[in-house]
């Protein structure tokens, strides 16, 4: 029998990381909680950036669900040649430095880019538009959703679907009524992770979309810009993002615990 590690030792060493993970956020919130917080939140820079962030992440999340669910199902349920390679390629954006992701996207959709050049000939410009913001978010965040859903589809017993089909449910109905409800926790998890990652996207966005108020300057970009001119506004936005992310994580915990 192996002796269990003493809790004292665990707490002692674990405390180092716990403090490191909690203290910075606390410092931010303490500094942001100033009398002028309310007025800073109403600053046009904040409201414009917040609106843009909400709009772009809504689009990128919707696109992730629509296009990501089939990808996850395909990878979970089918075996084919080159699958390992494909899975690695689809996970690549997760480990790529965001700046590299932005550069790659810019070389794709920029004016001289692989797709950007022919598109420009047709009068379509993607780089430096809100579409580029969505593209950057989709690129860096959607693999998180695909990963969550892939694992969920894999762990859903196939014989449950088969049973539904023998009970005269159509394939689509079996998928909708049996498979989807079972994958709900993973769906929520995937959406939360993808949305928060998209909301916080900075590196890829600033490279492929640039930073222009109202068009491409999302919350993180606005925070970066305001840091040098109006610290109060930057702090207010930082506090919003932190609290929103934290509330979402708590909600997610409750949801998954109750199911």
């Amino acid at each position: 029998m192996r002796a269990r590690l003493s809790p004292g030792l665990l707490i002692g060493t674990g405390l180092v990381l716990m403090i490191l993970l909690v203290l910075p956020t606390l410092a931010l919130l303490l500094r942001a909680a100033r009398p002028d917080l309310a007025s800073a939140l109403l600053d046009p820079t904040v409201t414009t950036a917040l609106r843009l962030s909400l709009a772009t992440t809504a689009v990128s999340l919707a696109a992730t669900v629509v296009f990501g669910t089939p990808v996850a199902y395909l990878l979970a349920r089918f075996e084919f040649r080159g699958k390992v390679l494909l899975e690695a390629l689809l996970d690549l954006p997760l480990v790529l430095p965001p700046v590299v992701a932005g550069l790659a996207l810019l070389l794709l959709v920029g004016r001289r880019g692989l797709l950007g050049a022919p598109l420009a000939a047709l009068g379509v410009h993607v780089a430096f538009t809100s579409a580029a913001v969505v593209l950057a978010q989709l690129f860096v965040a959607s693999p998180l959703y695909v990963r969550s859903m892939k694992a969920a589809f894999r762990s859903t017993p196939r014989n449950l679907e088969a049973a539904a089909i023998t009970l005269h449910a159509s394939r689509l109905r079996a998928f909708r009524r049996v498979t989807l409800p079972l994958t709900l926790p993973a769906f929520v998890e995937g959406c939360v992770l993808t949305w928060t990652r998209a909301l916080g996207e900075f590196g890829a966005t600033i490279v492929v979309a640039g930073s222009l108020e109202g068009r491409t300057q999302t919350m993180p970009l606005a925070i970066y810009a305001e840091l040098e001119s109006n610290l109060g506004v930057a702090l207010a936005m930082g506090a919003i993002l932190t609290l929103a992310a934290f509330a979402l994580l708590l909600l997610f915990r409750r949801l998954t615990r109750s199911t």
Binding site: R111, R112, G113, A127, F128, G210, S211, L212, E213, T216
Partner: peptide, 22 residues
């Protein structure tokens, strides 16, 4: 015509060097 306000002069120049801006 301004499509972006970049974080520093080198990144501003880089957008042209990459052919992404005119």
């Amino acid at each position: 015509n301004v499509v972006s306000r970049e974080p520093n002069v080198r990144q501003t120049a880089a957008k042209v060097a990459l052919g992404a801006a005119d």
